[in-house]
């Protein structure tokens, strides 16, 4: 259902008619849909021929070659733009409303700090203390619903009707309460009515970052205790580093913690949004992690 828009975006990217924001979402999609890479190559080749620039030489397996290059750079350190390094302010920001970060760090520490954040994040999930200052439910809750944007409104609905019915039988006394919050998967509109436009979550954007900070890496982790994939975004201003973790979960609630043990205390803020838990943690002030976590917005498409 989403194939066509992303293909169309790919075509627009060939022509340079795609916004930087859309490029980010498209790159994420390409990772899951290899056929988009093939299409990109085809579009490029046809465009080159139209412009009289030739075609790939015979006997070159284009995808294999690109895969080899991708494999080679897989082990390379992530490229960081030097431009971001000169944005660092020793005094932090003087904004009246925005939290200021003044922690000292160096770029070479970024991968280490990111790994440390992941370790802390994984460790916390295993600890009973996670419940301290937390309203997250302790046990793993099976994911049975998804959030869908219907005509501009986000609604939670069962992933399939069988699960809905099963849940009803198990918890029939709660059915009425749930039903109010869920949208049936059955078609609501008659043939004459306009079909509601449905959009799904295709990504996440950070609505606010402390000045000087930028995303330096996006990673995907498979954490056994969670049973799913966690998106890990690493942000830095060249001195301080913090991480944003986004994971799909049925759990809901808010958690706010501070852990000491290193030079700077590690602050954590976690909350749920549209079936996902957003966790921000790092050696930055508590108000920073909270502001960043609350600024995370969904990208739908």
């Amino acid at each position: 259902m989403q194939k066509q828009p992303f293909d169309e975006q790919l075509s627009a990217l060939v022509d340079g008619e795609l916004s930087a924001e859309a490029v980010v979402a498209l790159l994420a999609e390409i990772e899951h849909k290899p056929e988009l890479r093939t299409r990109w190559l085809q579009y490029q080749n046809h465009y080159s021929v139209q412009k009289g620039e030739g075609t790939p030489p015979p006997r070159v397996d284009a995808m294999t070659f690109a895969d080899r290059v991708a494999g080679s750079i897989e082990t390379e350190p992530t490229v960081l733009s030097p431009g971001s390094r000169i944005q660092v302010s020793d005094t932090g920001l003087e904004s009246e409303q925005q939290p200021v970060v003044t922690v000292k760090r160096r770029w070479s520490w970024v991968p280490l700090a990111a790994a440390a954040s992941l370790a802390v994040f994984s460790f916390l999930l295993l600890q009973p203390q996670w419940q301290e200052n937390s309203s997250f439910t302790q046990q793993q809750v099976a994911i049975s619903t998804e959030w869908v944007e219907v005509d501009g409104h986000w609604v939670e609905r069962w992933i399939n009707p069988q699960q809905r019915d099963h849940a009803y039988l198990l918890r029939h006394d709660e059915h009425a309460r749930h039903r109010a919050a869920l949208v049936s998967t059955a078609p609501q509109a008659s043939a004459d009515e306009a079909v509601p436009v449905e959009k799904h979550i295709v990504g996440w954007r950070l609505g606010w970052l402390p000045e000087g900070f930028r995303e330096v890496e996006t990673l995907q982790h498979q954490i056994p205790v969670m049973g799913g994939v966690v998106t890990h975004r690493v942000l830095s201003n060249g001195e301080a580093v913090f991480s944003v973790f986004i994971e799909r979960t049925a759990e809901k609630g808010v958690s706010e913690r501070q852990m000491s043990g290193s030079e700077q205390p590690v602050n954590l803020y976690s909350h749920s949004l549209l079936g996902h838990r957003i966790t921000v943690l790092g050696e930055v002030p508590a108000d920073v992690v909270k502001a960043v976590a609350l600024s995370v917005e969904v990208v739908s498409g």
Binding site: A28, V69, T218
Partner: peptide, 11 residues
């Protein structure tokens, strides 16, 4: 930091 963009340049 997005290596996937480099893949498109390679292709």
């Amino acid at each position: 930091g997005d290596k996937r963009a480099f893949d498109l340049l390679v292709l």
